[in-house]
């Protein structure tokens, strides 16, 4: 349960998995701006899929399945918005240099 040491670990794990999964998805996109070239699309997307499936499972060890799925989806939405913005900021910084 959230608040207990085990629950907090599972929530942290769920968050870590969704961050890694969203980053893999973004870095496989031709529009990614973090790396010089995108990651190979198929392997990166396969890894992303595995991580993004594992994330709600980790959340569900700390809470019921419905809030676990909600937490996962809300976190994923946020990350998929933020990652391109970080990419855009990196481009702006590189241009300034």
């Amino acid at each position: 349960m959230i608040g207990s040491p085990g629950g907090n670990t599972n929530v942290a794990l769920g968050l870590g998995l969704v961050v890694a999964g969203a980053a893999s998805l973004y870095l496989a996109s031709p529009h990614q701006r973090w790396l010089a070239a995108p990651l190979p699309a198929r392997p990166a997307r396969a890894v992303a899929l595995a991580l993004l499936v594992a994330s709600p499972i980790a959340f569900s060890r700390a809470m019921q399945m419905v809030p676990a799925v909600f937490t996962f989806v809300a976190s994923l939405m946020l990350l998929l918005v933020l990652l391109p913005y970080v990419g855009g900021a990196l481009v702006a910084l590189r241009r300034r240099r």
Partner: peptide, 12 residues
Amino acid sequence: YGGHPAKWVYFL
């Protein structure tokens, strides 16, 4: 739902 992490996600 989801405790403090979800609150922060909603805030952002």
